[in-house]
Design a protein around this nucleic acid. Structure first.
Length: 841
DNA sequence: AGCACGCCGACT
DNA sequence: GTCGGCGTGCTC
């Protein structure tokens, strides 16, 4: 019989490998590489993915179990995606099942459902027959058997709801073979859930139970008294409970079996969405510059070979039209295309441009879709009803079978890096996926990441290094806007203490007079609105995460934006009792207030996390601005992205350098990118544009070069710094974060870890300063406390590994982590590995 | 991750 | 002796 290798849905070290199963002849026609199957695993049935098929296995098949069921008519993964999963496992040090699961909509994360039924009559007597009675021995048993017999098949949940406190009787019936159980995978077509725990009995009853608990059940007692003590109004997360009390899931389950507590699946969140209609559009005539770029890409498409292009084009140079026309070519070849855009710019206007050109053949994947809607879009792709997908990061896994082109717009955006496991970068995944299917990749940006630009310029004999394509002029022939940098220190010296400099003030006034519009950007990165006491310096912080709480005006409370902790905003200082406690930071509200003071009657639309949380509010605000219902659009980063309004002739940046001093080696790059993006918002049409940038460090090269629209000079300066300090693109990084509840143990363990990595690298002759001219080099920095030193009651330490060369540094760090996990018996230790991290703070 | 197995300390 | 909690190890 044929056999299949299957990756099962258990994300742990021991099970992170294929398991062998027999392929029953009856299922054979439905099983391919990439099929989702239900397989017996230990005492349960699990979901798994077929990663290979073997017609005539040479190994011993006697111990193998057969695949139990096939879950889909069309395999949800292609051979190529399965291969991509293997690559991700090595590249990002994640579990293979985690990589595969991340490619699919959550609707396809099936879980076994346990069904109870009456056993089939068999002629051959069961061996248990002599030992047990096959007749019901009590009225209770009779009632249960009757209930099951009447329905034919029931779930455990139904049965235990109908017969509460009869778990033991049911178990006995199962053991005697009078009831039989089978498991089947059921798709989770609903929302995201987590296991949560709550008391199942009245408080008094629980306290009573606590009293006459067996002395032995110490752990259970702890759990129960903890629940009584904190008295949660809602079920609390099982995971957190286990971490807090240092108990195992078994203990919690024992309590649940006793009926004292209940374990439930609780919905985490959900949000709906609605579609729209689109006017058709025709291809535009390309400029000479666009045509040259187009020809190069199409040449590669026609070869049907893997190729990567870095399309560097100034804002307004018409990159989108290049995307549209290359996609058209790709479709003519009967191949399919993926368009990746940053989550934040995946607006209806953006989608409209693609739908207008390609109609129904466009599927859209964005994070605001509900699981059900996302599943529908996914099926549209899988079943061949769509041949173009426009989507955020995860759309790179769209289940096309004849992929010809992957486009990544705003290639430099950090949101292409997934911050949860698997911590992949969509750019790298895109390039590797394209290599597997002979597709072309276009990375487009006005401000390419230094990694991509450096790779393109150095043109190593690496297949994956992009070919550089440049567009220097705007498609409509208009000029880039004038940029004026205002030195805010000088303003202060001249006695202007307002957050608006005189030039910006005058420029806004002029726009108001002429009936033109203004976009104001508040670079809030690096600022937060925290609460501080001006008498004693007390700052309200999160009790579990050691970071300051953020003030939210709408709800007048303080929140931790890492763990979600919320507390009412204090009226008096909790430390010294002073009333001089207030919130600090340059919030958009404050700018709005000041604008109203300076320009009475000014109409402002404010766009920030507070005003755009509601579904659709983002688009609504932009539409109002487009309809000229306001003079000023004021916002954070989100106003810098891809917006295109004809009457905007002024862009003001309130503080350009607020992010420059952050402990992040990409601070200058991010500042330059943001300023360049936002400057590109002005004067895109007939009216000439003006940009005013306010800065406290106007001499900084990122600000000087942004004001001169001079990407090349910026790159030159920035690369000098990167080279001197050994940062990407001159080396690669791996960030290893260790966390534990106990600080001393954590520190010891982290030091151990660094020593282990050092020792192993040394053994291979890699370890040492990157200053040396060795081809293979590795340095490890730390351990040091993480930028977030404590999160959800766990201390965090990190090591930064810098490396270059052809070595496998990822497996080195991963192996060391696993070795360490084994040596520290305490399971409370968590180690996270982030390959090529984006967020360093 | 779950679930059975088996060790070992508190009860009849 | 035996019941049951809780750590250990395995899953094709």
């Amino acid at each position: 019989m044929e056999m299949a290798k299957v990756i099962v849905d258990v994300p742990s070290k021991d099970t992170d490998r294929p398991f062998d199963y027999l392929v029953p002849a009856s299922l054979r026609p439905w099983i391919e590489v990439g099929s989702r199957v239900g397989v017996p695993f230990g005492h349960r049935t699990l979901q798994g993915f077929v990663v290979s098929l073997h017609p005539r296995p040479e190994m011993d098949t006697s111990k193998m179990k057969p695949i139990q069921e096939v879950l889909d008519v069309l395999p949800p993964l292609s051979r190529e995606l399965v291969q991509l999963g293997e690559w991700m496992k090595e590249r990002y040090a994640c579990r293979q099942i985690t990589a595969l699961q991340s490619m699919l909509p959550t609707a396809l994360k099936g879980k076994a459902e346990r069904y109870i039924s009456l056993p089939e009559r068999s002629d051959t007597p069961d061996e248990t027959e002599g030992l047990f009675s096959l007749q019901p021995e009590s009225e209770e048993e009779e009632r249960i058997l009757g209930f099951v017999g009447q329905r034919g098949e029931v779930t455990i949940q139904q049965l235990s709801r109908a017969f509460p406190d009869q778990a033991d009787v049911i178990k006995t019936l199962l053991a005697r073979g009078m009831l039989s159980e089978h498991q089947q995978i059921k798709d989770k077509l609903q929302k995201k859930t987590m296991k949560a725990v709550e008391l199942a009995v009245e408080k008094a009853a629980a306290e009573a139970a606590l009293g006459d608990f067996p002395a032995k059940a110490q752990r259970q007692r702890e759990v129960l008294s903890y629940l009584l003590e904190i008295e949660p109004l809602l079920p609390i997360s099982q995971k957190e409970l286990l971490q807090t009390l240092g108990v195992t899931a078994g203990t919690v389950k024992a309590l649940a079996d006793k009926g004292l507590i209940a374990i439930k699946d609780v919905e985490v969140f959900r949000d709906p969405y609605r579609g729209r209609h689109f006017k058709p559009s025709e291809p535009l005539v390309l400029t000479e510059e666009q045509q040259r770029v187009y020809d190069k890409i199409v040449h590669k498409l026609d070869e049907r070979q893997h190729g990567v292009f870095l399309l560097h084009g100034v804002t307004g140079s018409g990159k989108t039209e290049i995307y549209l026309q290359t996609i058209q070519r790709c479709l003519q070849q009967e191949r399919q295309a993926i368009v990746l855009v940053p989550e934040i710019s995946l607006t209806p206007q953006m989608v409209e441009r693609f739908k207008a050109r390609f109609g129904d053949r466009v599927a859209v994947m964005h994070s605001r879709l509900s699981d059900g809607e996302r599943y529908d879009e996914w099926r549209k792709i899988r079943e061949g009803r769509a041949s173009v997908v426009v989507g955020a990061r995860s759309a790179v896994f769209a289940p096309f079978d004849r992929l010809g082109l992957i486009i990544m717009d705003e290639e430099h955006e950090t949101s292409y890096k997934q911050e949860e496991t698997p911590k992949y970068h969509a750019r790298d995944v895109a390039i590797h996926r394209a290599a597997l299917s002979g597709a072309a990749v276009i990375l487009g940006s006005a401000t390419p990441s230094l990694e991509s630009y450096h790779a393109a310029r150095s043109q190593a004999q690496d297949d994956f290094a992009p070919v550089l394509l440049e567009m220097h002029s705007r498609a409509l022939g208009n000029r880039l806007p004038e940029v004026r940098v205002v030195d805010m220190r000088e303003q202060l010296r001249e006695g202007n203490r307002s957050m608006f400099s005189i030039p910006l003030h005058e420029a806004i006034a002029a726009r108001l007079e002429r009936g033109e519009q203004t976009v104001l950007l508040l670079n809030r990165r690096g600022y937060s609105t925290f609460v501080m006491c001006r008498s004693c310096g007390y700052v309200a912080g999160c009790p579990e995460c050691d970071i300051s709480l953020t003030y939210h005006q709408k709800s007048n409370n303080l929140r931790c934006h890492y763990c979600g902790y919320a507390a009412p905003s204090p009226d008096v200082c909790p430390d010294c009792g002073s009333e001089h406690i207030r919130y600090f930071g340059t919030g958009t509200q404050r700018v709005e207030e000041e604008l109203a003071k300076l320009f009475p009657g000014i109409r402002v639309i404010r766009m920030d996390v507070d005003t755009t949380t509601e579904k659709g509010s983002h688009e609504k605000l932009l539409q109002q601005f487009r309809d000229k219902k306001a003079d000023v659009l004021l916002g954070t980063q989100m106003v810098a992205k891809g917006l295109d309004f004809p009457d905007v002739t002024l862009v003001g940046v309130i503080t350009a350098d607020s992010a420059l001093n952050l402990p992040d080696f990409r601070a200058a790059e991010k500042t330059f990118q943001l300023l360049t993006q936002v400057a590109g918002r002005a004067g895109r049409h007939q009216l000439p544009g003006e940009v005013v940038i306010q800065s406290y460090t106007p001499e900084h090269y990122s600000i000087i070069h942004a004001s001169g629209h001079d990407y090349l000079s910026f790159v030159k300066d920035e690369l000098k710094h990167r080279k001197a300090l050994h940062y990407p693109p001159y080396c690669r990084l791996i960030l290893v974060t260790l966390s534990h509840e106990q600080l001393p143990l954590l520190v010891r363990t982290a030091e151990n870890y660094a020593a282990m990595v050092k020792k192993e690298a040394d053994r291979r002759g890699w370890f040492g300063s990157l200053d040396r001219f060795a081809a293979d080099a590795l340095d490890i920095l730390g351990p040091v406390a993480s930028p977030i030193p404590r999160l959800k009651n766990r201390y965090r330490f990190q090591c930064m590994i810098k490396w270059r060369g052809t070595m496998d540094a990822v497996s080195l760090t991963r192996d060391a982590a696993e070795q360490l996990q084994e040596s520290v018996r305490d399971s409370g230790l968590a180690i996270s590995i982030d390959v090529d991290p984006q967020m360093l703070m």
